[in-house]
Nucleic acid binder design. Structure first.
Lengths: 239, 239
DNA sequence: GACACGAGGTGTACGGTGTACACCTTCGAG
DNA sequence: CTCGAAGGTGTACACCGTACACCTCGTGTC
């Protein structure tokens, strides 16, 4: 393709353009479908051209992660204190969650990063500051960060989340029968979440509510440890 | 390679042998390094021979997961009741953790499975039964399973877990300096975990203790919800 | 004992991947 | 006007998963 002779002088490549295009494609087609070749084609460019703006595919994904993370609102640590830290932590985590929810590939990308990127460290730093300003000591803060774990990022990896439904009525009936006899608890548990009238067997489970449930469990537990003067006195061991 | 002429009649391939070899290789070299070609070479066989025992690479990994999960001790639900469910749940999760710890590739394999395999469902079923026999209602059980999330499997995906240490003193000094000024909380939090005298900058963080900490937070929270008659009365919302 | 059959191992080939390397074009600074 | 570098191109390589046709046995049947 001639560059200028065809009439449309395309906008020159740039790191930002590469990253944005990659993010948009991953949003709609998934991270697996994103290859250097398809990305290059999207940008009307030859695959190797990408390498002038991105060191490797791994670095490309790092860049995508950084770009998305950069959209997180900066933490406002001004008035954070013993009374408010829990609410501030909660809302920040929920904000991160809603930001990441728009990019389904993020959870996997975050998990497979070998080293934390600066933006990841920024977010962790903000969380730690919230805890520390709430009055938690460094040790409890450390444990709390571990406990919150993936929740810091606004997601919990759900085992068996998606996957295309069978759709064949006979097939789902058979699956249900198998469930009923071999995994009745799983079946009951899955069913128990359908508060509203839903379709046949759809999950009908409010992910956001589940997330908040676990999040509150953790935050309350951390707070009660804190109130109990953790860890200086006898540490409360389970049963 | 002649089959019998060379003298050593190799043991014939079998699904179990394929799976075992794959597991052993993944244990030492990681899941990424495991390709059908290298696995075939390990078994002194041509790549396509594997497909007589395994439908696809995806199915191979499913089989590996099933094989490892099959080593989990069967749940003993006999005496589980309101007094003991929490301890039983705790010990089962910790048992699963120690089993999976010997196969570092498992956490990633579990997460990337599209649908839950039978052995996964077995384990979930056992967990659900423990909760139900403890007296928890189906709804609270459901939420608890979500809350426990990845912990059910005995691991928590740690952001920034491993990665080869820089080893160059100058480099780590520079990293430390950058940390101190930009991510002081992260630095403090990382440092706070080194209870014993450790090497220069090693993590020195007791993963098992962290895991148990979060686990207890969740279990205690679930129990307190249960005691409070959850969810029938006014649900305790944070703040 | 002859023979067919099917399970299991082989060889070749195809379309995909990431990316190293040499090349060419273009444009702005001196 | 020149020159050097930044950025886009083309070719090539090694590797991946796996479809398909083939061959080679051990075994059950007549």
């Amino acid at each position: 393709m001639a560059t200028t002779a065809t009439g449309g002088a395309r906008t020159p490549l740039s790191r930002a353009r590469v990253l944005d295009e990659a993010i948009g494609y991953a949003d709609t087609h998934g991270l697996d479908a994103l290859s250097m070749r398809t990305l290059a084609e999207l940008l009307d460019v030859v695959p190797m051209a990408l390498y002038k703006h991105v060191r490797s595919k791994e670095a490309l994904i790092d860049g995508m992660v950084e770009t998305v993370l950069a959209t997180l609102p900066a933490a406002d640590l001004a008035g954070v204190g013993p009374e408010s830290w829990r609410a501030v932590a909660r809302s920040r985590i929920l904000a991160a969650r809603s930001a990441l929810q728009r990019h389904p590939w993020m959870w996997r990308a975050l998990e497979t990063r070998a080293a934390p990127t600066p933006a990841m460290l920024d977010h962790m730093e903000a969380m730690i500051q919230i805890l520390r300003r709430g009055g938690l000591g460094p040790v409890l803060t450390h444990h709390a960060m571990h406990a919150l774990g993936g929740r810091i990022w606004g997601f919990t990896p759900e085992v068996a989340s998606s996957g295309p439904a069978p759709a064949d009525p006979a097939e789902i009936a058979a699956a249900m029968a198998a469930m009923r006899e071999r995994w009745p608890g799983v079946l009951e548990s899955a069913m128990s979440a359908r508060h509203e009238a839903g379709s046949a067997v759809g999950p009908g489970c409010d992910d956001d509510a589940e997330f908040a449930f676990a999040l509150d469990l953790l935050l309350e537990g951390v707070e009660s440890r804190h109130f109990a003067g953790w860890p200086s006195p006898a540490r409360a061991t389970s049963h």
